[in-house]
Amino acid sequence: MRNARYTKANMMGEEIRPIMVTVRESEETLEAPSAPAVTVEHLNAYYGTFRALNDVSLEIRARSVTAVIGPSGCGKSTLVRCINRMHEVAPGASASGRVLVSGEDIYAPDSDPVQVRRHIGMVFQKPNPFPMMSVWQNVVAGLRLEGISDKKRLEEVAERSLRKAALWDEVKDKLHMSGAALSGGQQQRLCIARAIAMEPEVLLMDEPCSALDPVATIKIEDLIRELRESFTIIIVTHNMQQAARVSDRTAFMLMDEERAGQLIEYGSTAQIFTNPQDKRTEGYITGRFG
């Protein structure tokens, strides 16, 4: 309920500036020490010869929501795409540095990108359920493509994942309908269900609400707060209010002079929004630029 004010304001299209942040949790629970789930060390990412990320290092805590904010083109998406090695899918793209997930370097020479992606889920900007598959087939697509055909197990996983994605009640009667027949918000939750069906250690979300209307956005945000109990979530967002609403920690990124993305400031969401240490962070969150 603590977000009701923002919710309403957002839905009515009002601007809140400077952003007032209600701290989501008490500071102690936020700062409770836990082993980092993801450690990024001196990460550089390239598209051909163009450097998109400049020496980014940060630690992501397990079972928490980390928001990555910053203006367009600052490398937010590139950063999360490096965490499941989707970055290198683009022609000519490459990365250097270390990314440790549960202590293992996913960029080690013997690391298999397919296995990395198997354990790190991703939700994209545009809802992308497979168009020729039903709702049910979409949820278990990853498992079936892995060769699992035990119907009972698949049905269990499908129901559990759909419940976790807060979609079960809405689709339980249309499991055999095409996934494309759902609304945009439902499609995005279907994609979340599809990702968590693989029981990933980390769930990456690349602007998951940017193609959705405000009501669907709120549903996804509620869902993110629930999923935080089971997954380590990293969410890229354009929307600062959204970062303030859903995240425990926030990373702020900017382009440097050569247009490469840099991590400017990283801390608890409350601190970033109420007491930014860097002038540029302050400028961005108060809406002076970006």
Binding site: V89, V114, Q115, R118, G121, M122, F124, L145, E146, M198
Partner: peptide, 9 residues
């Protein structure tokens, strides 16, 4: 991308 991100070769 959706498929690759699920760990499908």
């Amino acid at each position: 991308e959706a498929s690759l991100a699920l760990g499908v070769p």
